Amino acid sequence: MTRDDPLLDQIVRLLDVRLLDPLEVLLEGDDAVDALRQLVRLRARGWASAIRGDDDTTATMAMARLIATLYPGDGPFDPPADWWATPLGQTMARRLGHPWFASIPYATAGAMLGITRQGVHDLVKRGRLPRHPDGGVPSEAVRDRLRALSDSQDPPGDSDDQ
């Protein structure tokens, strides 16, 4: 792992745990798994770069492929609140907002912003975040707020958000 790239480290770690370790068990330690580990590490650098890159379509597709592979399921991807604090979660929140829901609950918005549900409620009450007509807040508004906070170099949980 790189130790200086948390996003890359998370991608590699998740692929190791969710895909390669089980494959190693099934194949009884076959050397082919070591070759796959090396390939995954090489490709993970490209995925992390694509996710951070300037091309929104490429970034979205890279994140979608990773999410579909790492978190398979029959329903839409709806990670637990603490996932949004991870490097992949924070990158996705800034890049896309919530990828499958236009309206997100205050608790999810808070997790994405790094503040409490009450902090989101206060932002809505003060007009700093809009309320979604279906309840909660628009995912794109959370994304836009994260982008604005990134641009201003303030942390998402600055004193204005508390």
Rank of each mutant, 00 (worst) to 15 (best):
V40C: 06
W47F: 07
R143P: 01
A35K: 01
D56L: 09
D31V: 00
Q90Y: 04
T57A: 15
R147Q: 15
R41E: 15
D74M: 01
A81M: 14
A141T: 03
G46T: 12
T58K: 13
S139T: 05
R128K: 12
T60G: 10
G75R: 15
P99H: 06
P99Q: 05
M92I: 08
A111R: 06
K125Y: 14
R65L: 07
R143H: 04
I115E: 12
A93L: 07
L149K: 07
G29N: 05
G46I: 05
L123T: 04
A107M: 13
L149F: 09
A62H: 03
G97W: 05
M112S: 11
R143W: 03
V142C: 11
G135E: 08
P72K: 05
T108I: 13
P133I: 00
D74V: 03
Q118N: 08
L66E: 01
Q38V: 00
E140I: 01
F101M: 10
L129P: 08
R94G: 08
V33K: 09
A109P: 01
A44S: 08
D56A: 12
T108G: 13
Q38G: 11
R94H: 10
G46Q: 14
G53A: 12
Y106L: 08
Q118H: 09
D82I: 09
I104R: 01
G29M: 03
E140L: 03
T108P: 13
I67P: 13
W84P: 12
R143M: 03
A93D: 09
L88N: 12
T86V: 10
D56F: 03
G135M: 06
T86C: 13
A59H: 06
T116M: 07
L66F: 03
G127Q: 05
A141K: 05
A111V: 07
R128M: 09
S139Y: 07
H121I: 00
D31C: 00
A107P: 13
D82K: 14
D54T: 15
T57R: 15
V120L: 04
T116C: 07
L42Q: 14
M92E: 06
P99W: 02
L123H: 10
M61Q: 15
M112E: 11
G53W: 07
W100C: 10
P99Y: 00
L39E: 14
H132G: 04
A102G: 09
S103M: 01
W84V: 09
Q118R: 10
K125A: 14
Q38K: 04
R145Q: 15
G119W: 04
P79E: 10
V124H: 00
L36I: 02
D122M: 12
F101N: 09
P105T: 04
L36M: 05
